[in-house]
């Protein structure tokens, strides 16, 4: 397995990065490469220019902040600031891929992880034998072959739902300066386009958590066959802010899922229904049952859609119950 020939650019400042992106429109940004380069080895949408973000001081290092896009998952896992601010993020980071990959993989890369599908994540020879698909070399989706196809490949990053449950905002930077978008509005339901709006040259600088993040209890549940290595086959994060004491009435809630769609997404209606209630078995069951109705897993990951749908119930239920202080 070899990475095809390409030009690697290593800008040392944001300005240099914007120059490079403008000069080579046909490029990909590179964080740790643990997603992008795997795809490149299989000749998936290879671009001739790759622009590394590893030398931009704004994306990594002390000064860049605890949720800078260039921080590695290993750093997120062991960061004392995050352990205080958003401990569930560190725990979720610790469940991603393998220890080796987490040393290289970045937060930015995780949030921009390409969508996955068994018709797509295959070798070039395999795709050739299969007439490929819309997301690669052909013009039809193999999962839902309907006219005016959209790709329904699965987004399977673990951090996005957790960050959404904490109410995170993405801070983007481009040649025209910075802008902020709630992470829950950052993605678009399209396995190829993936992002609602990204301006040319724009990249993710960091994530910001709202002032009250520390008041939230967030729990994440991940479905996968093996205890390490595997991408989520379903993931649910639940966040609650207590009205007065922990374990009592819920003042505000957030529910987010991953690995069920082409995007990580929030479920505001389900969250709304939790407000004013206390966490109990039946409340948790109800949340689970409703989430199960809302998710539409596709037949393109290793576990069957029917099973993943059933598990949405269990994941949501367990995530909510885990918010209780005793658990």
């Amino acid at each position: 397995m070899r990475i095809p020939d390409l030009a690697l650019h290593r800008p040392g400042s944001l300005d240099e990065a914007f120059e490079a992106t403008a000069a080579h429109p046909d490029h990909d940004l590179l964080g740790g490469g643990t997603d992008l380069l795997c795809n490149y080895k299989w000749r998936l949408n290879v671009r001739p220019h790759v622009i590394s973000l590893r030398h931009l001081p704004e994306l990594q290092g002390e000064a860049a902040g605890p949720l800078a896009a260039g921080r590695t998952l290993h750093e997120l896992e062991h960061c004392p600031v995050l352990a205080q601010l958003c401990p569930e993020l560190s725990r979720a980071a610790a469940q991603i891929a393998t220890p080796l990959i987490r040393r290289t993989a970045t937060l930015g890369g995780n949030l921009h992880l390409d969508t996955r599908c068994w018709h797509f994540n295959q070798t070039a020879e395999w795709r050739l034998a299969h007439d490929s698909c819309l997301k690669a070399e052909a013009d039809q989706c193999r999962v839902q072959p309907v006219p005016g196809d959209v790709c329904v490949a699965t987004y399977s990053g673990d951090l996005a739902p957790v960050l959404m449950a904490y109410g995170a905002e993405a801070v983007l930077v481009g040649p025209d300066g910075e802008r902020r978008v709630p992470l829950s509005e950052y993605y678009a339901l399209d396995g190829i386009r993936r992002f609602a709006e990204r301006k040319p040259g724009e990249l993710m600088l960091r994530l910001d958590l709202p002032q009250d993040a520390g008041d939230w209890t967030v729990r994440y549940q991940k479905l996968r066959l093996r205890e390490t290595f595997d991408f989520p086959e379903g993931g649910v994060a639940v966040g609650v802010r207590w009205a007065d004491q922990p374990g009592g009435e819920i003042a505000e809630a957030r529910v987010a899922s991953t690995a069920y769609d082409s995007v990580p997404r929030v479920h505001p209606d389900l969250a709304e229904r939790l407000v004013g209630r206390q966490i109990q078995e039946d409340v948790a069951e109800e949340l689970g049952a409703s989430l199960r109705e809302e998710v539409r897993p596709m037949k393109n990951t290793s576990m069957s859609p029917a099973y993943r749908k059933k598990m949405a119930r269990v994941l949501a239920k367990r995530a909510l119950l885990a918010c209780l202080p005793s658990s």
């Binding site: 393998t98 068994w118 994540n121 295959q122 070798t123 395999w126 034998a129 299969h130 066959l225 093996r226 205890e227 390490t228 290595f229 595997d230 991408f231 290793s302």
Partner: peptide, 21 residues
């Protein structure tokens, strides 16, 4: 797959138990 193509010819998709398991 129904066409006889092996769907999971990689160590990500062919699930050998990890040391953790």
């Amino acid at each position: 797959l129904n066409n006889g193509q092996l769907r999971n010819a990689s160590f990500l998709d062919y699930k050998i138990p990890s040391p953790v398991d």
